[in-house]
Design a protein around this nucleic acid. Structure first.
Lengths: 210, 210
DNA sequence: GAACCACAGTAACTTATGTTACACAGCGTA
DNA sequence: TACGCTGTGTAACATAAGTTACTGTGGTTC
């Protein structure tokens, strides 16, 4: 664990803090598809992602879902940061998108380290800043983009995360992430294929204009 | 200024911090309609709102706007909190919605007080939490509600802020806040009037089912 | 009063998106 | 091979929202 911590966070945190994390944190592995946190769950720990990706989703009362953003190595959950300020229930759902490893730290260290370590303050504030930015992008997509642009943006995002231009995903999966229907996605993907920006296969989409 | 600070923040901050704010902050008044901060502006200070309301907006490249949320007495701007972490340009626009007074604090005190004052840490984290929550509500509205529900929600929000059930606003203003057109708003408001939940006047809307 | 202007009402139409229904293709398995 | 399942393609239609255009109205100003 110490080694993995060093690799992912060595350049971010000072040695003393790394030691504290190694001592008080716990390394856990999570399998693709596993639900890590659901809406309404109590938040008792801070996750530091080591590898893999986590999907952060919002759901409405009818069960419709919307992808908000992804967490990757070096990220943490903004929702975990509401330490000791009354509200501590999750507003979002976190699902493992590809097998992941992470270090979980009991929530009570949050405040202690904020006082003690400059690097921790920087890290936490940066995390808030990044999450805020991603929420704004989600809002932009919904408010200002049409479905075609949202799908394109989503595919580009996927390419960045998977580091491959051939994505393993079905039309239904895209529809779920964007809270639309499979038929709409198929229709738009076909148009994108016609325009030459992607190529469609069964269970696969190749991104050409990346 | 000391008195106004006491009234609005006396119960939040410890005496030493209140003294520091009184010493290093500056009380300013802003008139309705005045632009306080625009997208791309550098953020050099933290505002603590004393009275009035501030509208926080997002804009896309075509100039279309969307209301994100309001700031009121006791609130601060989440965007101001990206102190010293590289990015310091505003992603949002802040416009005074009703004559406001606020205390502005140079950004460099942010970090200092985070170390020194437990109450400041609590306040700042709470602010992030509340802003996060409001962003989620904005996303919910866009992703899961139809225009009629969005308009209703917006009117209820206005009533809460103005503390009156007769709102002074035009259909065009609603259309601007929700990034839609005046005709659409008029059409839906008329339906809401038919259903008995509101009553329409020139430049005014009365909310009945509140 | 006449002219003007911002605001509101409404019809008619376009477009984007969602829905229903069905055909068919790829692929694993009995 | 035959069967069944999942994923994809597509048509036909329904609905919500955006657009254009025109009317009327309350209030202001000359």
């Amino acid at each position: 664990m110490r080694q993995k911590l060093e690799n992912s966070y060595g350049f971010l945190f000072e040695p003393d803090l790394l030691s504290e994390i190694a001592q008080d944190g716990r390394l856990i592995a999570i399998a693709e598809g596993e639900k890590m946190l659901d809406i309404g769950d109590y938040i008792k720990s801070i996750p530091l992602l080591i590898s893999g990706t986590i999907k952060i989703l919002r759901e409405d009362k009818n069960g419709d879902e919307l992808l908000l953003y992804y967490l990757e190595c070096g990220d943490t959950c903004a929702m975990s940061m509401n330490h000791g300020i009354g509200v501590s229930k999750s507003e979002i759902r976190a699902i493992c998108d590809s097998d992941a490893e992470l270090i979980v730290i009991p929530i009570e260290f949050m405040n202690r380290w904020l006082i003690k370590y400059e690097s921790w303050r920087k890290y936490i504030f940066n995390a808030y800043q990044v999450r805020f930015q991603e929420m704004l992008e989600a809002i932009d997509s919904l408010a200002f983009y049409d479905m075609s642009a949202r799908i394109e943006k989503h595919l580009i995002e996927k390419v960045k995360i998977c580091k491959e231009t051939i994505l393993n995903l079905t039309h239904q999966e895209i529809a779920n992430d964007l809270n639309t229907s499979r038929v709409v996605v198929s229709r738009i993907l076909k148009k994108l294929e016609m325009s030459g920006s992607i190529k469609l296969y069964r269970n696969k989409i190749e991104i050409l204009n990346y």
